[in-house]
Amino acid sequence: MTINFDLATIWAFIIAFAVFAYVVMDGFDLGIGILFPAFGVGEERDTAMNAIAPVWDGNETWLVLGGGGLMAAFPLAYAIVLPALYPPIIAMLLALIFRGVAFEFRWRDPKHRAFWDLAFTGGSFMAAFTQGIALGALLQGIAVSGRAYGGGWLDWLTPFTILTGISTVIAYALLGATWLIWKTEGAPQDHAWRLARIIGPATLAAIVAVSLATPFLDATYFQRWFAMPWVLLSAQVPLLVSLASFLFWRALKLRHERAPFLIALFIFLLCFAGLGISMFPYVVPDQITIWDAAAPERSQVFMLIGAGIMVPIILIYTGFSYWVFRGKVGHDGYH
């Protein structure tokens, strides 16, 4: 039991890391997609696209690791959660198809560029929205019967999940805008500055709304957040969010080019930590813990060896790829 305890917890953290890596890295890709209509046709849009074209594929791979890792390390959780979220997940997959092919297709087919731009924005928006819905649906709880999902196919649809969906769209847009501040100059950057000033406060409002709603979904969440001694730890999260928001605003005022993105990342990290406080050690709230869902030790050890060797290597060459494409991007492709 002791060894299993350690392994399941380690794997919970690895998968949380993969999900977080996905959320922030594809978050700014999707955010740029969401903001795409705000940018002018031609140079501005081409620049915005170039800011992510070489890296989006690698960013999206973290989503596959999150899903594949969940199946491998916690197969029971994978088997219960995915059918419960069937419509939003299918919608997300279809949305990611439109978003992904738009990168190539819009360059190949000038006549239908407007259509593929729309597919890029629609796909990005829908992927963000459904990911937010999936998160909300998980947080609000899933009906379990035996070793399977026990609810209907529209249980996920509630006001709370719509709120988390919209919040995710706004938060991704913030990452997108701040990434463009970092990576572009001239007209698209000016545009991104203006957008960040609107989306920054909107993101804060979204965080507050979701944070206020969550503890009241379920008595357990309320207890985790407000009972002693947990409150001493959990109270740091909103305090740090307030501090980060102030720093973000200041960075925009002082026109720091990198700080807004980095601070936005930090805010995401705080929200993710808050999510962890609400959920841990459950993967399906109040029903299935990570130990209930864990694959046997042999599976988790075998994968841990692979992850231990490969994840650092992946981070190194991912870093290399970002380094190759460092600096400001132009609008006419990489030469």
């Binding site: 690698g58 791979t61 690791l65 594949g68 197969p75 399977a148 994968m303 991912t318 790829s321």
Partner: peptide
């Protein structure tokens, strides 16, 4: 999902290895 629950401990790690050793490599250098 029933298949995933039952076979996940055996085939899940193989697919995780696919992601770790192949997908990232392709995507990272593409």
């Amino acid at each position: 999902s029933v298949f995933s629950d039952k076979a996940g401990p055996v085939i899940g790690p193989l697919m995780a290895y696919e992601v770790l050793t192949a997908f990232f490599l392709e995507a990272g250098f593409l």
